[in-house]
């Protein structure tokens, strides 16, 4: 039945029901991103902006990376990368891992090291706002 010209201007119980359904769907949308996360295939390590290594994620290995203040140890295990030893004072980079997905990064600012997961879907643009 098509509605022509007739309308209501007082809130109805259906408005409230619709609002509740939309609130539920809004809460459920928290999970939308998880469905799109893609497993990365490689890690890319750079020191002070210069690339120093590119390793596949599917082989377990331990990599020692030399930075300005010492050696940072990166470990690849079970398709995930983690920093397991760092010379920096706060060890924030160790707490950032392990990371498995494309676009994930671990950064050690004192030792100038960036470990980034590549491969899988996605492109390296940030954002355009207008």
């Amino acid at each position: 039945m098509v509605n022509r010209g007739r309308y209501g201007t007082s809130p109805t119980r259906w408005d409230i029901l619709l609002l509740m359904v939309l609130i539920l769907l809004t809460v459920a949308s928290v999970f939308a991103f998880r469905l799109t996360k893609s497993q990365g295939t490689d890690i890319w390590i750079s020191v002070d902006g210069r690339p120093v290594g590119f390793y596949p994620l599917n082989e377990d290995r331990t990599i020692k990376v030399k930075g300005p203040i010492g050696i940072t140890v990166v470990r690849i295990h079970n398709g995930q990368a983690a920093i397991i030893e760092a010379p920096c004072p706060h060890k924030l980079c160790q707490k950032m891992g392990p990371i498995p997905s494309h676009g994930d990064v671990m950064i050690c600012i004192p030792n100038r090291i960036i470990v980034e997961i590549k491969g899988g879907k996605g492109r390296e643009t940030d954002a355009i706002t207008r």
Binding site: M1, V2, N3, R4, R6, Y7, G8, T9, S10, P11, T12, W14, D15, L18, L19
Partner: peptide
């Protein structure tokens, strides 16, 4: 058109 009889403009 489909639900204008049961929804107000809020919905």
């Amino acid at each position: 058109r489909l639900a204008g009889r049961v929804l107000s403009f809020w919905g």
